[in-house]
Design a protein around this nucleic acid. Structure first.
Length: 461
RNA sequence: UCCAGCGUAGCUCAGUGGUAGAGCGGUCGGCUGUUAACCGAUUGGUCGUAGGUUCGAAUCCUACCGCUGGAGCCA
């Protein structure tokens, strides 16, 4: 039994191969006088393998009716191509037509808009663009693990179903087995979640951070990498209700060490993809974003600028730029401000030490009593790609922060225990996986870097 | 959720009150070691949905749905 060769391996062959078996989907077909050219793609790489189907094949009439989208198994010989444009091609001895595709097949050999392809999310990975996107997505995930594993980080699986409803990050999807038509009620008539499956209200996680802190307080350096769910009605090209996030957490690490790691990983991932996804990046640079490679090199070569929030406000005020939203200490930086910081300054920027009023309870209070050790890494084109902080490790200060945020410390006993027993300064951040993927591919809509995106009103596939 | 724009053939679009169009794709034929092939013919429509104005609506009005861009929330 002949084992199949991937299109990628066939195209990289150093010598002719006979016999060879390849299999995949027909991208396009052209007839010549005595034979037919078939472009075969199996998703192993961007390029197609050219198949020569000669007219003596017993099923040649059927081969001539092969259309874009059909699946075939080809046996033959890999030989040097007589034509230009490819080094190798397969001269077929036998072509098995596995599954036809009739004229309702929506993909054409010519270009489609990403918006149209999004409507056929089940077929779009068969397009050049999305094949590239999802190969890069795979490599990016691998490179992230590699980055952390090389540095001694332990991979932690934090829960997807969580009981804490106030992690300071967005609206939550409720997880319940209660019958919506006949829910148990409390005496006051409210739905009684104490009778729900977990005997308490539960939700899909919006962050694994709190649990990662527990593991960092034992294994020193950990990271999570998993799905995250936010029930926000966000309709933008940068938001999805289900996305993946990487959250490193490091014990005995302050904000500077945290910023070092965030900047290092962004650079590492760029270098890795430049090396391992050159063909795919080439396609993005050609069809998606002409400046992509220059921007990636720019981010890689340039030292990231670090600007305290207070200084960023001063820079924006002195910029002379007319912003739609006010620039004032104590206000959040708006998209237009972040854009100015990264695009006008022409470099990635890490803004840190934000006013405590605009940041969550777990961030460490600075000695000035006014700011917390928050940091946001901003990149040109996307904006915030990393958000993190040094965590408040002092029990009393953390409890005070909770009360200031109208949270009851009693609800966070286990989290506070981490400060009661062997507390240490520790830091971490969240890196948006899809945002990183958008940044390295130039694809401008988050829906186009997720296999089957979940956005408000949209969960068809 | 808010603001703006757009929904016409399988795809990309033109058509701004008077008979529904083009290119590409598909199909058929021709030509050809071709490669977003080429040449000829042909196929193709509830003009997003529902109301309304008008002698007459793809075109004007209203509502809804969807998509795109921007904003907020954030990763």
């Amino acid at each position: 039994m002949l084992s199949p060769t991937s299109v990628k391996d066939a195209l990289q062959s150093a010598a002719p191969v006979a016999p060879i078996q390849v299999q995949g989907w027909v991208r396009t077909r052209r007839d010549s006088k005595d034979f037919s050219f078939i472009e075969l793609n199996d998703g192993s790489c961007l390029r197609n393998l050219q198949i020569i189907a000669e007219n003596w094949l017993p099923n040649y009439a059927d081969v001539q009716h092969l259309t874009t989208g059909a699946s075939i198994i080809v046996r033959g010989e890999l030989v040097a191509s007589q034509g230009k444009g490819q080094n190798w091609e397969v001269v077929a001895d036998k072509i098995d037509i596995v599954g036809g595709a009739d004229d309702t097949y929506p993909l054409q050999k010519k270009g489609h808009t990403p918006e149209f392809l999004r409507e056929i999310a089940h077929l779009r990975p068969r397009s050049n663009l999305f094949g590239c996107v999802f190969r890069v997505r795979s490599r990016l995930a691998f490179a992230i693990h590699q980055f952390f594993q090389e540095r001694g980080f332990i991979y932690v699986h934090t829960p997807i179903i969580t009981g804490s409803d106030c992690e300071g990050a967005g609206e939550l999807f409720r997880v319940t087995t209660i019958d919506a038509k006949n829910p148990p009620r409390t005496q006051s008539g409210e739905i009684d979640y104490a009778k729900d499956f977990f005997l308490r209200p539960t939700y899909l996680t919006v962050s694994g951070q709190l649990e990662a802190e527990a593991f960092a307080s034992a294994l020193s350096k950990v990271y999570t990498f998993g799905p995250t769910f936010r029930a926000e009605n966000s309709n933008t090209s940068r938001h999805s209700n289900e996305f993946w996030m990487i959250e490193p957490e490091m014990a005995f690490c302050d904000l500077n060490g945290n910023m070092d790691l965030a900047e290092e990983i962004v650079k590492y991932l760029i270098v890795d993809l430049r090396e391992n996804c050159a063909e795919e990046l080439g396609l993005f640079a050609k069809f998606v974003d002409k400046e992509l490679l220059a921007r990636l090199d720019f981010v890689f070569e340039r030292k990231f600028r670090r600007i305290p929030y207070t200084e960023a406000i001063e820079l924006l005020k002195k910029s002379g730029e007319k912003f739609e939203f006010p620039v004032e200490y104590g206000l959040n930086l708006q998209s237009e401000h972040e854009r100015w910081l990264t695009e006008k300054q022409k470099c990635p920027v890490t803004v840190f030490n934000y006013p405590k009023e605009i940041k969550p309870f777990y961030m460490r209070l600075n000695d000035d009593g006014k700011t917390v050790t928050a940091m946001d890494l901003l990149v040109p084109g996307i904006g915030e790609i990393v958000g993190g902080s040094q965590r408040e490790e002092r029990l009393e200060v953390l409890e005070a922060n909770m009360r200031r945020h109208k949270m009851d410390p009693a609800d966070y006993k286990w989290y506070l225990d981490l400060r009661r027993y062997g507390t240490v300064p520790h830091s971490g951040f969240g890196l948006g996986f899809e945002r990183m993927l958008m940044f390295v591919t130039g694809v401008s809509n988050i829906r186009d870097v997720i296999p089957f995106a979940r956005t408000p009103g949209s969960a068809e596939f």
